[in-house]
Amino acid sequence: MPYHHKDFAPYAQQHWPRLVTTAHLLCGDAREATKLVRNTLVGVCARWRRMPRDDVDFYVRRSLVRAYLRGARRAHGPSPEGLGALSARQRVVLVLLHREGLREAEVAQMLGCSVRAVKSLARLGMLACEGGPARLRTLLATDVLPGAVPLDAIERRGRALRRRRAGAVVVACALVLGPSAALAANQFGGADSASGAGADADGAASSPVRIVTPGERVEAVRGVRLWLTDKGKHWSTPLRAHQFLGLAEDIAEGTADGTADGTVNDTADDKKPHVSAQFEPLGDNFFLSGLYHGLSTAPGRVEASLGGTEVTGTVLTLAGSPGWGVWYARAPLSSTALKASLGEGGPTVTVYDAAGKAVARSDVRR
């Protein structure tokens, strides 16, 4: 559930000292740190109503880190004292790991890189840090006592930024919506059900696998939005808003999770490859989607077999290759096709790796 707009003020006041301390450790200058946090909170305020409750801290940290890295690329002045031998990304990794207490996988998602890259940056940063680990612990243990949060100015600029963004969206829609309306209707109407790798509903070029950030909304088909957090899959339909399925629930509720060799696991194990399937009513049709998890490699594609018809699903996964994600079919499933498929044992879903090897297979959850 997104935050109510009135919740922004207490959140900003509560987290202002920690954010300024983190920013100071990154940029090494109190004035620049305050400016960095202020600008970050302006952007957060503009997007506040759309942020799910369990992702606010991630959004704020990611916005702060990205703004710092953009500024670091433009800056040519002296590096922060004590961390001067470190690159900007090395400082980010060390601060997030050893000050913020994030896991390596979380840092990888925030930076949009692999866990291996995070480990490499941490190792090189530790080696380059002047004074070694003891000195680093001392530096990262330092707290900053910032001034009062400039809440009125932040909220005023945040509202102005939100209005500008809304105006830009209206103008863009007016320019492109007319000629593309018929195409958008056909995407869900089944006029080209084999075009799973066509254009996404948001206009971006689509591929079978799409990397998203936590909380990023994706319009799977008209009327259905999907998004991922580190806790699992979220989706909304016209009939049911903000539904959620966690990885543990997916394993516990699955009716027949199995590996690619056809062996059914009577006792679910979240360390083994699994893929689930479920259908949601959507008017006279059904929306088919599911979760995959336990993969040791990134998926190459997902195929759903519906009564002899093969459908290539679109895959959503978080940055950093966490080993799990969501798949969905872009074409609706009619009641007739669904009944025929269930009569043959239900849709079968198979996950393939990049080399074309089947790594997980499962049947539908009813």
Rank of each mutant, 00 (worst) to 15 (best):
G294R: 02
G294Q: 05
G294M: 00
L295E: 01
L295N: 01
L295I: 04
L295K: 02
S296I: 10
T297D: 12
T297M: 10
T297E: 15
T297W: 00
T297N: 11
T297S: 15
A298R: 05
A298H: 07
P299N: 06
P299I: 00
G300F: 11
G300Q: 08
R301G: 00
R301L: 10
R301E: 14
R301Q: 12
R301T: 08
R301F: 04
V302R: 06
V302Y: 07
V302Q: 05
V302C: 11
E303Q: 14
A304D: 00
A304K: 00
S305F: 05
L306A: 02
L306N: 09
L306S: 00
L306C: 13
L306K: 06
G307T: 02
G307D: 02
G307K: 01
G308K: 11
G308M: 13
G308T: 10
G308C: 13
T309W: 01
T309I: 02
E310S: 14
E310Y: 09
V311Q: 13
T312E: 15
T312W: 15
T312N: 11
T312H: 13
T312R: 14
T312A: 11
G313V: 06
G313W: 07
G313L: 02
G313R: 00
T314W: 09
T314Y: 11
T314L: 04
T314V: 12
V315M: 08
V315F: 07
V315S: 08
L316W: 14
L316K: 11
L316A: 10
T317N: 03
L318I: 03
L318V: 08
L318A: 06
L318Y: 06
A319G: 13
A319T: 01
A319P: 01
G320L: 03
G320N: 01
S321I: 07
S321R: 12
W324L: 03
W324C: 00
W324S: 01
W324T: 02
W324F: 12
G325E: 08
G325Q: 06
G325S: 12
V326C: 12
V326N: 10
V326M: 05
V326L: 13
V326F: 01
W327Y: 15
Y328V: 05
Y328A: 00
Y328H: 12
Y328Q: 00
A329V: 10
A329D: 08
A329P: 02
A329R: 06
A329M: 08
A329C: 14
